[in-house]
Design a protein around this nucleic acid. Structure first.
Length: 565
RNA sequence: CGGGGCGUAGCGCAGUCCGGUUAGCGCGCAGCGUUCGGGACGCUGAGGUCGGAGGUUCAAAUCCUCUCGCCCCGACCA
């Protein structure tokens, strides 16, 4: 490709819009162009990279036994109502109506469509297992798109769905995909961490995310320093600090004037925060829920949402609390009636807690679970923090930011049962197909790759996804000999099957070198009177420091070797 | 949805508080010339609904009202 003919220009200045490295570089290199919030056009340079990523993914999916197909973006809302996922997605679902006012959605994912399709094609255990995938655009009306391609509303995604006769089959498909995903990230030059993940409203069993550890990542990843445990903070557990059990003492009211926060309470009574009990109020799908947790811990709302099996969860406002006769700021689980109580499991082992007295300026000492109050559920709903103990070994947990570049789920039989996708097993018994789903967002993967592979001059592409392998730049193009040899070399390199970006512009060396660095093409080849004097061209790797001369004779062959090494 | 910021040429910005001739600067772009191994220089030139609508005023990029859009923080995010 001749730069003079290429659509899409590099920009010298950093666009004001962008503040992450990948976003800035995507714009400065002319790879993408924004159309609306969270909606981007790929220009030729960016599209090339995206297609390389796509073909790596396609290749790995095919190798793993996947069959590619394509499902529609436009889907009837009714299908989503059948699984109630219209509610689960809520406002995130793009909806529209056709000319006869039939409600439609722009698919945010394709479990419903594929399950329906499979139900019509699979009748027998002999038809299974199947791995079906597509690379298709998805629409999600994100509350806040951000970070360039990191979080967008329209994006290309590879989604594969596995269909098995039983759990064992699902496990096998899952392992197969896990390996395929690992290969994809390896080939894209992207180190990832496999973490346990929350499986969301649908609730399947296992779920894992592939995380790229990066400061700019919006996810929080919890991992153990000494064992392999790693989990998204939404799902992460820790060995909670054990408070040594004391003998239960009689309940005692204490006056605590003006004390409403845990911090104040602990300070006022001169006890550690872990000896206090914190109460919070949530509205779960319209119902008030009373939540109790040890004072030094925070509630993990994802866990809470999961145990409550609700679609919408938010903190209650003061009116909603007082309505139930509860005194906010001094609420107590003791004597609470007519409200669902959820207690974190940190509350049971400790004893003689301090908590609210349900009267203003009053708290109660020596509260003990079971003796003084009961909960409808005692479960782990705590947010893990750095420094806590690993639940699987003696190690300590750390927290890092990560970019989620892949997510795999064991869906189980929710969709097959809801949408009637059954098969007849060997014994003639009708059973629901056991499903899994496996997604990778292509644009996000691209952005994460840049995030991990750049310096202050620009992108440094891993070779397999670089838009071009060679940046060929003649210096002093007016010199007819330079021009002639560069043209010839360009033809030879292309003939050798290399993808060459030929900087045929009349520009100073500085401009060309800077664009070469910005675009991040792995190998730069310069032709100039200086190199020709030595019957050579100059080769410099983007990732390396030094340039070296390559003899003109056989240059295309040796450059091909360098590129492929 | 709450909080903050911003919309002036393709890009980055000044001008807005305190209204006043033809709305500036840098980059980029076009032409000519000189240069040229790490974003060269000179000369000439093109390019603007000042996000939009309404209002106030003799006069609006500037003041007022409404509105649209974009970014950041939070909420949110299978």
């Amino acid at each position: 490709m001749r730069i003079s003919e290429l659509f899409g220009k590099t920009q010298r200045e950093i666009p004001a819009e962008a503040d992450t490295a990948s976003h800035q570089l995507l714009l400065r290199t002319g790879m993408v162009s924004q159309v609306a919030a969270g909606v981007y056009a790929y220009q030729p340079m960016g599209w090339r990279v995206l297609r390389k990523i796509e073909s790596i993914i396609r290749d790995e999916m095919d190798k793993a036994g996947g069959q590619e197909l394509s499902m529609p973006v436009l889907q009837p809302l009714g299908l989503w109502q059948e699984t109630k996922r219209d509610q689960a997605f809520g406002k995130g679902l793009f909806t529209l109506a056709d000319r006869r006012q039939r409600p439609l959605v722009l698919g945010p994912t394709h479990e419903e469509v594929i399950t329906r399709m499979v139900s019509r094609n699979v009748q027998s255990y002999r038809d299974l297992p199947k791995l079906l995938y597509q690379i298709q655009v998805k629409f999600r009306d994100e509350p806040r798109p951000k970070g360039g391609l990191m979080r967008v509303r329209e994006f290309s995604m590879k989604d594969l769905y596995s269909f098995d006769i039983d759990e064992a089959g699902l496990d096998q498909s899952y392992q197969e995909m896990l390996r395929a995903y690992q290969n994809i990230y390896d080939r894209c030059g992207l180190p990832t961490l496999l973490v346990e993940a929350d499986s969301g409203a649908i609730g399947g069993k296992d779920s894992h995310e592939f995380m790229v550890i990066a400061q700019s990542g919006e996810e929080e990843v919890v991992y153990c320093d000494s064992c392999k445990y790693a989990a998204n903070v939404e799902k992460a557990e820790s060995a909670k600090e054990k408070i040594k059990a004391e003998k239960p003492l009689p309940i005692e009211e204490v006056a605590t004037p003006g004390v409403t926060t845990i911090e104040d309470l602990a300070a006022f009574l001169e006890v550690p925060q872990s000896y206090t009990m914190k109460t919070l109020f949530y509205i779960a799908d319209g119902e008030l829920v009373f939540v109790v947790i040890r004072g030094d811990l925070e509630v993990n709302e994802v866990k809470l949402k999961n145990v409550l099996h609700c679609y919408e969860l938010r903190l209650a406002n003061e009116d909603e609390v007082t309505e139930k006769g509860i005194v906010a700021g001094s609420a107590s689980p003791v004597g609470v009636r007519g409200v669902k109580v959820v207690a974190d499991d940190s509350v049971t082992p400790g004893m003689n807690f301090v908590a609210g007295g349900n009267k203003p300026d009053t708290h109660i000492k020596n509260i003990n679970y079971d003796r003084d109050f009961q909960a409808d559920m005692v479960v782990d709903i705590a947010l893990v923090r750095a420094g806590e103990g690993c639940p699987h070994c003696e190690g300590k947990l750390s927290v890092a930011h990560g970019i989620e570049v892949g997510h795999i789920f064991k869906l189980g039989t929710f969709f097959s049962e809801t949408l009637d996708a059954f098969f007849i097993d060997e014994k003639g018994v009708s059973r629901p197909i056991v499903m899994g789903c496996y997604g990778i967002g292509l644009g996000r993967l691209l952005a994460a790759t840049i995030e991990q592979n750049h310096d202050d001059k620009g992108v440094i592409w891993p070779r397999p996804i670089a838009p071009y392998q060679i940046y060929l730049c003649p210096l002093y193009r007016e010199d007819t000999k330079v021009a002639e040899i560069a043209e010839k070399l360009y033809d030879e390199l292309e003939a050798a099957g290399l993808e060459v970006l030929f900087d045929d512009r009349v520009e100073s060396p500085g401009v060309k070198f800077n664009d070469a660095d910005l675009l991040g093409i792995p190998v730069r080849v310069a032709v100039s009177p200086r190199t020709l004097e030595k019957d050579s061209v100059e080769m410099k790797k983007r990732a390396g420091k030094d340039a070296e001369l390559v003899p003109l004779i056989g240059a295309s062959t040796s450059l091909k070797e360098i590129v492929e090494s």
